[in-house]
Every structure is written in C-alpha cells, then in structure tokens.
C-alpha cells in the first residue's frame, strides 16, 4: 500500500514537471475564467459569450467559474491570488476591480495585483425619471435641487454602486444637492420611481432599457462621452456642460500580475478577434452591452485614470469605508 502511494507521488511530480516543461505551448490545459457574479446577470452573460466564442475560434477549453460575493470582490480576490500561469483569467468590472478596493472591500490592489489584458464591453449609466415627472430635463432637476437642497430624491442601486457614484459625481460637478435614497438593486426602486416616491434614479442602461422603451420611464441624461446606441435622442451630461461626467460600467479581462507577456499578448489577440465576430456582437447587444476591444495598454490607462477619479468622488461624497 505504501509502495503504491510512493509510485503515485512520483508520477504526479513527474506530471507537474511535464506541465512546466511544456509551458512554451500555451494553452495545454483548460483555462478557468473567474466570473465574479452569479449565473444569470450581465457579467455572467458577457463571460459566457466570450468563453464560448473563444473556444469555438481557437479550440481552447475555457471553463467559466462563478465565484460571486461581496459585489464581485470574492472572485477578484481569488483571481489576484491565483497562479500567474495564464490558466486563471478574470472577467473584471470597474465596480469590483477599481471601486470596491476604494471602499475597503477586497484585499487587492487594482494596479499592482493584476495584469490588464483588454477591455471587452461597456454600458453607460443613465439618469431616469418617471413619465409625466415634473423633472423632464436635467436643467430642471439641477435647478430644483439648487433652489432647495435635498428636495430632489435620488434613488440608486445601493451605496458605492456605479449608479450611486455617478449621481454623486453629477452633484459635485453641478453643485446641486440631492437626497440620496439607496435601494438593494433596482427591483424595488422602479415601483417607487413610477409611484412618485423618488424623483430620479441612476442605473446601468440595460437594467432600465425595457421601461424606457415602453414609455413608463423617461431617460434624461447619459453618463458617457457619446450618446447611447439605443437612446439616440437622450443627451449626454458632457453635452449638457458637465465635462468629466462619464460613468460607465465596463467589463475587461485581467490576469494575475506576473503572467508572462506572451500569454497576455496571445489572450489579447484572440479575444479581440472574437469580439469582432457577428455572433459575439449580436449576443452582447441582447445584454445591452457595447462591444469594445482594446490593446492591453489602453485598458491599463483606463484603470490608472479611473482609480484617482473615483477616489476623489468617494472622498468628497464622504462615503464610509467598510
């Protein structure tokens, strides 16, 4: 019996060495794609589309692995600590990669602990009001909030969410003061918005698109540099005179810091190619995400500019660390 164990041990060591020797041929084993949210959400969909299409295009085995919790930080923590061998990749989002550490959630550094691969997709934050609201434009909202600070009730999907921070950013840029009413996600906020118990809500475009199309909710402004593809008539806050007001949700692939440059380059090239495919773009459109694709350097630049920007917003809004 003891002999058998020894043989096993030797064999497994040999197998490990074999793996190390064969390293120049990447990938020679399945790649784990950490999805930091549960099955069913936009992040899961984006990840699965990338995994499936990448598998089809290259023949690689990509296994999406849902590791939800703490607003995505559980998955990011796991990814940051994983072996930097290219076999663990992470579908990160600005909320969990950049913003959570600023709020004291997650024990990782967005710049030091990860190697950016590429930007995959984005969708902008949108400010919405009920149809027939007295605040049918951003001008009216800002004017009312300045005339009587705290009188305009601003709902968000929760403290520290992208929607909340976008609203805070607008208040800081305009000097207006809203009464912030945090919800747990969007489901309870929309009836309150439709019922007139809050005046406006900021959430991601796909989460409110159905109600906007139906006409029960009215979009007044988009937190992006360019207008949203699905909302061509809604002005951006940039156009309305609030420059520096972009607040988008982005998705991007990152790998643990220390992953070899060849692997990062190979992943970048293959995923960029997948993002150009018709099937990928059609499936992203269903989820309400705009396909991006980028170089690793562009993605790194975005992370490096996002960190100080949101750090300042969080400090000025006095959002407490957890």
């Amino acid at each position: 019996m003891k002999k058998l164990w020894e043989v096993c041990a030797i064999l497994s060591v040999a197998a490990l060495c074999g793996g190390a020797i064969a390293q120049d041929k990447y990938p020679d084993q399945p790649i784990r794609l950490i999805v930091p949210f549960p099955a069913g959400g936009a992040t899961d969909l984006v990840s699965r589309v990338v995994a499936t299409e990448l598998g089809k295009a290259t023949g690689w085995a990509i296994a999406p692995d849902n590791k939800p919790g703490s607003g995505g930080s559980v998955g990011l923590s796991l990814g940051g600590k994983a072996k930097a061998d290219g076999y663990t990749i992470v579908m990160a989002q600005n909320a969990n990669l950049v913003i959570n550490p600023l709020l004291g959630v997650g024990n990782y550094d967005p710049i030091k602990d990860f190697e950016p691969v590429l930007l995959v997709a984005s969708s902008p934050m949108v400010m919405i009001v009920a149809k027939n609201s007295q605040y049918e434009s951003v001008e009216k909202i800002i004017a009312a909030a300045k005339a009587k600070p705290g009188s305009v009730r601003f709902g968000s999907p929760g403290i520290g969410t992208s929607g909340h921070l976008a609203g805070e950013l607008l208040q800081q840029l305009s000097g207006a003061k809203f009464l912030h009413v945090p919800y747990k996600g969007i489901s309870q906020a929309l009836p309150d918005l439709m019922g007139g118990r809050i005046d406006l809500f900021v959430g991601s475009a796909p989460s409110v698109m159905a109600q906007i199309k139906e006409g029960t909710l009215h979009a007044v402004g988009v937190f992006d540099k360019k207008r949203a593809t699905d909302l061509p008539d809604v002005p951006t806050f940039d156009e309305l005179g609030y420059s520096g007001s972009e607040a988008i949700t982005w998705w991007g692939v990152v790998v643990p810091a220390g992953t070899r440059k060849e692997i990062v380059d190979q992943l970048n090239k293959e995923i960029n190619a997948v993002l150009k495919k018709q099937e990928t773009q059609a499936q992203f459109k269903n989820a309400g995400a705009d396909v991006l694709g980028s170089s690793a350097e562009e993605f790194a630049g975005l992370i490096q500019s996002d960190v100080p920007k949101w750090k300042l917003v969080i400090e000025r809004a006095d959002i407490k660390k957890r």
């Binding site: 703490s70 607003g71 559980v74 959630v105 929760g158 403290i159 945090p182 747990k184 957890r322």
Partner: peptide, 20 residues
C-alpha cells in the same frame, strides 16, 4: 451582511463570504 443605508458591514467578522 452589508447595511443598505450606509454600506457598512455588520456582524461579518471580516469573513468576505458573509458580506452578503
């Protein structure tokens, strides 16, 4: 878990899995 109105974690003893 996480308090909705302040975003502060309560009774989680720093176990990330308990944050929700």
């Amino acid at each position: 878990g996480t308090d909705v109105n302040s975003g502060i974690e309560r009774f989680t003893f720093n176990v990330p899995e308990l944050a929700d």
